[in-house]
Each structure stands twice: as structure tokens, then as C-alpha cells.
């Protein structure tokens, strides 16, 4: 799978947030988008997934050369895209396993084998050092910030997407948990060959990952693209140096 964001402009309630963003990545690659607060990172991810409140005004989002802007969110996911949320929604009464089963069946277009699914949930929960009681809970209900982020990763590995966009998978996590989450993203990527696009403020999680491409975002567009050296530059000079360009 190849995902391309081409000269994309998007607004929320008439206010322009994304102003000509460009990005291209393939399945199997690890990319990072970094940028300060308000630079449009989350809005970009939502635009790719067709969030109703984000209006694309110009440009395109392509998967394998075909525009996906006319597709509903579920159809975009069915192509093999995954969005890990910065703030996962709590949904009262929707059981976590119930939801996992529904999503797995929707993406795979086949009936889930419940024994296999429960086995996978148990195995990956252990890897992520998650409390097993999450299985009996409503979706994200009552989870701490860190548990929610781990639950997002659990969903990702069970869904086996082709490209996963992870919006701040490290926020709300302690140092140990950041390492656990990063290791499991790496492991899932190795096992499935999926591409990963990590959106983050900090390089903390990136010290455990090996991104091929780094994109710096400011004012709704990419202001720099490069390799890992950009992360070091950011660390030394901060976002201000990129804003001045």
C-alpha cells in the first residue's frame, strides 16, 4: 500500500488548519511527523480518515494512486488504514471484546474466530503489560491515559493494518510504558510488514524506534523532510528554527 497526501488544504468551522500538506509513504516504512502544538498534526490525521468536522478544501489523499476522499471512514479503514487516537473516546456499554470482534470482522470481511481472537488479546495484552481486566470493561471506560494508549496499540496489532497513523502514542505514558509501547509497535511492524506514521511532539518514543523519514510540520504544512538527523536538530534548536524558514 502507498499512502499519499497531496497539497492538502483543510479547515474546521471555516478556519484553515491544513495549508498544503504533502507526504508519501509505503507499507513497511516508518515515518514520523513532528511539530509544535497547533501545527495541524491531529487535524491532518483526521482529514485522512474523513472526520466529519474537518473539511478538505483542496488537494487529495490517495491510497495506491486512488483518491479516498469520497469514501466513508469505515471504508478507508477497510483499505488497511488505522488511526491511533490522541484522545481515545470512552463509549459506555460497548464491551471492549465486542468492539474488537466487530472491527476485526468489518476489516477482514469474515466472521471472527472467537477462540483465536481471545487468545490474541491475551497474548498481546501480556506483551503490552496491560491489566487483563480491560477485557471485561466498556470501551476505554475508566482507563488511565497510559492504559488507553496501550489499548490503541492492542487494537492496532489485532486489526493488522497496512499503514497505521498513531497520533501521539507516547502522551500520558511513563518512561517504562513508552518503551513497552514502542517495542510493541516495532514488533507488530516486523511481524505484519505494516507501515507506521507516528505523530508526536517529543523524541522520547523515537529513541526506541527507527524511522526512515521525519517530517516537521508547522502552520498546517511540512516545513522540513529528512532522515533521523532532523530529530537531533530539533532536540538542539527546537521548533523555532523551523518556523523561521
Amino acid at each position: 500500500m502507498r499512502l499519499e497526501i497531496k497539497d492538502l488544504y483543510a479547515s474546521i468551522d471555516g478556519k484553515a488548519i491544513i495549508n498544503g500538506a504533502n507526504l508519501a509513504m509505503n507499507e513497511g516504512e516508518v515515518h514520523v511527523i513532528m511539530g509544535p502544538n497547533g501545527s495541524g498534526k491531529t487535524t491532518l490525521a483526521k482529514a485522512v480518515f474523513g472526520y466529519p468536522g474537518v473539511k478538505v478544501t483542496r488537494g487529495d489523499v490517495l491510497v495506491d494512486g486512488k483518491s479516498i476522499l469520497g469514501l466513508t471512514t469505515d471504508k478507508r479503514a477497510a483499505l488497511g488504514l488505522f488511526l491511533g487516537f490522541q484522545h481515545p473516546v470512552e463509549i459506555e456499554g460497548v464491551g471492549f471484546v465486542n468492539f474488537l470482534r466487530a472491527s476485526k470482522e468489518a476489516v477482514s470481511q469474515s466472521q471472527a474466530n472467537m477462540k483465536e481472537l481471545m487468545k490474541d488479546i491475551k497474548s498481546w495484552s501480556d506483551e503490552l503489560k496491560m491489566d487483563e481486566s480491560i477485557i471485561g470493561r466498556a470501551l476505554n471506560k475508566g482507563l488511565s491515559g497510559g492504559e488507553k494508549k496501550k489499548a490503541e496499540i492492542l487494537q492496532m496489532v489485532l486489526q493488522r493494518p497496512k499503514i497505521a497513523m498513531l497520533d501521539e502514542p507516547d502522551s500520558g505514558l511513563d518512561i517504562d510504558a513508552v518503551k513497552v509501547v514502542a517495542e510493541n509497535i516495532n514488533k507488530a511492524a516486523e511481524q505484519t510488514g505494516m507501515g507506521v506514521l507516528v505523530i508526536t511532539h517529543y523524541n522520547r518514543i523515537l529513541s526506541h524506534m527507527h524511522p526512515q523519514r521525519v517530517h516537521i510540520m508547522a502552520d498546517g504544512r511540512m516545513v522540513a523532510d529528512g532522515g533521523k538527523e532532523l530529530i537531533d536538530k530539533l532536540e538542539k534548536e527546537g521548533y523555532e528554527s523551523f518556523n523561521r524558514r
Partner: peptide, 8 residues
Amino acid sequence: FYLMSRGV
């Protein structure tokens, strides 16, 4: 949106 982002 959250549910649909998972293909539902």
C-alpha cells in the same frame, strides 16, 4: 467516528 475508524 472512533468506531468507524476501525472499519465498523
